[in-house]
């Protein structure tokens, strides 16, 4: 220990001057700001964001973008059992089997998918976060009880669970959202609980306790905010799945009951028997579902990477 320099310890001012280099800018980079910067350098994230953005804009501004009113069946007389009119100057994508403009239906379908996707994921996230948060915050017997409950939910295949919930609730407007949310709850619960358990073992949590913070403060302002990263990533990924599941449930006839509301999944069903003569009726809504899901998946994956401490540069 001959390297100890007594002169250094006597001069705090010179020491602070010494430590001052490399800290010229006054503003720090928080975790989320760093993540945003990494996101903006990732091409997959940019593509994903663009798709998501386009989808959201189309959904919001559907009345302005769509050339006609939705689901009016104005041109039903042009539709024959063997033929649905294809693209024409008045209808760039042609008509649908009910005599409405296909482009209009697709644009309004985006709206439906967004609402159901966002609402169901929000419900699932809320329910899951509540269960997982309680299990992670209290631990012990509460944790065991809640997690066994979640295990039971998890043991039912998610689509089957959604189908059963939708069937039990009947053709109510919110049924499909609740059904999809029910299938997501256990995923979010497990994720948040695991993430909280991992954070609770960290030194900074111990440090918070040793500083004399109350247990509630430690959990709410230290453990939970640090555990949310993976949950938020999962939510964006789940949005993609939710949109597909909406389509699946509608396809099975468990979707929104009002036929006047355009919905991609139901468009697939109605196009089924015309697959050979008019394949565009099935391909176009299918493509919409696939591209939207891809957009959310790309965005979610990029977000995961950006929030991963190991990829931090």
């Amino acid at each position: 220990m001959t390297a100890l320099d007594p002169a250094q310890s006597a001069r705090p001012a010179s020491l602070s001057a010494l430590m001052g280099d490399g800290m010229s800018d006054e503003q720090g980079t928080s975790l989320w700001r760093g993540a945003f910067e990494r996101l903006s350098r990732n091409p997959a994230a940019i593509i994903g964001t663009l798709i998501v953005l386009a989808f959201v804009l189309v959904a919001i501004f559907a009345p302005l973008l769509a050339p006609y009113e939705p689901a009016k069946s104005q041109w039903i007389d042009q539709v024959t059992p063997s033929d649905v009119p294809g693209p024409s100057p008045g209808h760039p994508l042609g008509l649908d089997p009910f005599g409405s403009d296909l482009l209009t239906q697709l644009i309004y379908g985006a709206r439906q998918s967004l609402i159901i996707g966002v609402v169901s994921t929000a419900i699932g996230l809320l329910g899951g976060a509540l269960l997982g948060g309680v299990a992670g915050a209290f631990g012990g017997r509460v944790d065991t009880f809640v997690m066994r409950l979640v295990d039971i939910m998890l043991s039912i295949p998610s689509l089957l669970l959604a189908v059963s919930v939708a069937a039990v609730m009947g053709p109510r407007p919110g049924a499909i959202m609740i059904a999809i949310a029910a299938a997501q709850v256990p995923v979010f619960a497990r994720l948040l609980r695991g993430s909280m358990l991992a954070q609770r073992g960290q030194d900074y949590v111990l440090a918070s306790f040793s500083l004399g913070l109350r247990r509630r403060t430690v959990v709410m302002s230290h453990v939970v905010p640090n555990s949310l990263g993976p949950v938020i990533v999962q939510a964006t990924l789940t949005l993609a799945t939710a949109i597909i599941e909406v389509a699946a449930l509608s396809y099975l006839g468990l979707g929104a009951s009002d036929p006047a509301i355009a919905e991609w999944g139901r468009m697939l069903v109605k196009a089924q028997d015309r697959l050979q003569t008019d394949p565009q009726l099935m391909l176009l809504p299918g493509l919409c579902i696939a591209v939207t899901a891809l957009g959310f998946t790309l965005f979610g994956e990029a977000l995961r990477e950006a929030l991963d401490p190991k990829s931090r540069r």
Binding site: S16, M19, M23, G28, L31, R312
Partner: peptide, 12 residues
Amino acid sequence: GLPRAALAKYPH
């Protein structure tokens, strides 16, 4: 021995 500029910064 840390400068005032450290206040706005984050541990990493």
